[in-house]
Design a binder for these strands. Structure first.
Length: 520
RNA sequence: GGCGCCGUGCCCAAGUGGUUUAAGGGAGCGGAUUGCAAAUCCGUUAUUCAUCGGUUCGAAUCCGAUCGGCGCCUCCA
């Protein structure tokens, strides 16, 4: 079974065959860094981070590029508003973006080129288009001549004359309304770069054509981005690159679904949105996730929920679907995730080792899928293999992370059941061979979840550093007091101790070999 | 208006021609376990996949119509 990818260009799933065997080039359209990111900006990075992990797991050498747009009208606007330079705005917001990516576990990006650092390449690219007569200069501006591109509109299935293009002052300079800017002349006081057409800055689309060529070549394997970028951005990228090079820009075009913000009280959903006659604030906020919709800062959301929860929440659903973001939906994801965290504690009780060390270091986790030893097919391991095969089949099918997650739950259930039945928590009753089987099953769980970028390292406890130890001592004291009460059959007192701890956020669990506790 | 996407149990969600008389998670209910819980396990909640027609030996999966939702056509990921 090989990997298949849904290609927007052909509207069908196609077998994945990279242009150069063994190597994969991916370009993902990144952010315009003028304001702090919101959760919607993380959908693409999270899914492509997962895609890269999966391709690496399958033995490919992946080069993943995410661009940073650091010159643009909105950036200029921010710099004026805040009284700092455009470059300062960009640097600040790029750092914010990168910090958010890391918090979400996105650490697979190979390079993040900035538009302003690629001016030479951009200008050369525009010159090439002018030479080939696909672009023209018009009093300091340069436009792409859409009429010259016979194939224009093939990605989004539109014809050139349907497109409005930029209006305003630029319209008068254009040969036809659908032409779009490659280079914009600078007005007084705007950041500008020297060019053959005078002082100015690049248009929105050209940086992606120029930087992808520099870093990935004239033709590369996968180009990705949000569904909203399909038109006009990606269409224009195709026009620029393919007219310039005379060959396909990217073999596979992938578009992720967009995030919507949902109203409180509803878990989410693809379809309905309740519409009241009154135009309430809540209603205005329920809809497309965008900066204007008051989606809430990602920074706050990350602080509140943690990156792993949000990542899991996004990966639970197929990347091409619309996801509705709400607190209720996130709470549900948290409950589901907890099943794994609870199991990791169980693993630790059984083996006296941290789950996070179960299969060596992280690099070993992302090994080639062929490296499996399936010679041992005894009871548990046969089941484990079944779930692993199902998991990989789901991922092979257009990176169906939602389906893959369900196999993770199946695997988890299998491991819990085995631990129950073979009394693995009671050292006197268990057998070494059962323990070995169990550990090998857990290694598979760790390996498969690593593909999704989950459970790679312990989630930072809400209690900071040193106070963690103090908290444990404190809780242990209560546990001892409660144990005494239980000895004396004073259940009223023992229950009160437990209830009050629960109210304080500490859950107790009585086990054969003693009482344990956890937060939450 | 043009171009697309979607409608699966109480909620979320995979599946897109037969191995599915439909995964997985949440919620509910019943049971095992527990002093009672928590956690875990077992059972249970869609003869049905918006509706109506059609194609087919066979459809949630293909085609058409209808209803409902969503996105893009404005430099929003």
């Amino acid at each position: 079974m090989s990997i298949r990818i849904y290609n927007t260009l052909t509207k069908s799933k196609e077998p994945f065959e990279p242009i150069t065997p063994g190597k994969v080039g991916i370009y993902l359209c990144g952010p315009t860094v003028y304001k702090e990111a919101h959760i919607g900006h993380m959908v693409g990075p999270v899914i492509f981070d997962t895609i890269k992990r999966y391709l690496t797991y399958n033995g490919f050498d992946v080069n993943w590029v995410v661009n940073i747009t650091d010159v643009d009208d909105k950036l200029i606007g921010q710099s004026r508003e805040r009284g700092i330079t455009m470059s300062q705005v960009a640097t600040e917001m790029t750092m914010d973006y990168c910090a958010n990516l890391l918090a979400m576990g996105v650490d697979q990006i190979t390079s993040m080129p900035r538009a302003t650092e690629n001016m030479v390449e951009i200008i050369q690219f525009i010159e090439g288009l002018i030479e080939k007569d696909y672009a023209y200069e018009s009093s300091g501006d340069v436009f792409f001549d859409v009429q010259k591109d016979r194939q224009y509109g093939k990605l989004s299935n539109r014809s050139a004359d349907e497109q409005q293009g930029e209006g305003g002052g630029a319209a008068a300079k254009k040969r036809s309304a659908s032409d779009f800017a490659l280079w914009k002349s600078a007005k007084a006081g705007e950041p500008a770069w020297d060019s053959p057409w005078g002082q100015g800055r690049p248009g929105w689309h050209i940086e992606c054509s120029a930087m992808s060529r520099r870093l990935l070549g004239e033709s590369f394997d996968i180009h990705g981005g949000g569904l909203d970028l399909m038109f006009p951005h990606h269409e224009n990228e195709i026009a620029q690159s393919e007219c310039c090079h005379g060959k396909p820009m990217a073999k596979y075009w992938m578009h992720n679904g967009l995030l919507r913000s949902g109203e409180a009280g509803k878990v989410g959903g693809r379809g309905e949105r309740e519409s009241d006659a009154t135009d309430s604030v809540e209603q205005a906020a329920s809809g497309k996730m965008s900066r204007s919709a008051g989606a809430g800062g990602l920074r706050d959301q990350l602080a509140k929920h943690g990156g792993e929860k949000i990542r899991f929440f996004l990966l639970k659903t197929h990347y091409r679907s619309t996801v509705v973001y709400s607190e209720a939906a996130l709470d549900e994801a948290a409950i589901a995730l907890d099943k794994f965290y609870v199991f990791f504690d169980r693993y630790e009780r059984i083996t006296s080792r941290s789950y996070y060390l179960a299969a060596g270091d992280d690099r070993k986790l992302v090994r080639r899928r062929e490296e499996h030893d399936d010679s041992d097919t005894s009871g548990l391991l046969a089941e484990v293999k079944g779930y692993r095969d199902a998991y990989l089949a789901k991922m092979d099918d257009d990176f169906n992370s939602g389906g893959a997650v369900s196999e993770l739950f199946n695997l988890l259930g299998s491991l819990n059941k085995f631990a129950d039945q073979q009394n693995l928590e009671e050292s006197a009753k268990r057998s070494q061979s059962d323990l070995d089987q169990f550990c090998r099953g857990v290694e598979v769980l760790r390996e498969l979840s690593a593909i999704l970028g989950l459970f790679l390292k312990p989630v930072a406890s809400s209690a900071a550093g040193g106070s963690e130890e103090t908290l444990d001592k404190l809780v242990q004291t209560f546990i001892r007091m409660r144990a005494d009460a239980r000895q004396n059959k004073d259940f009223a007192l023992s229950d009160r101790i437990r209830d009050e701890l629960t109210a304080a956020g500490v859950t107790l669990e009585d086990r054969k070999e003693g009482t344990t506790w956890r937060l939450g």
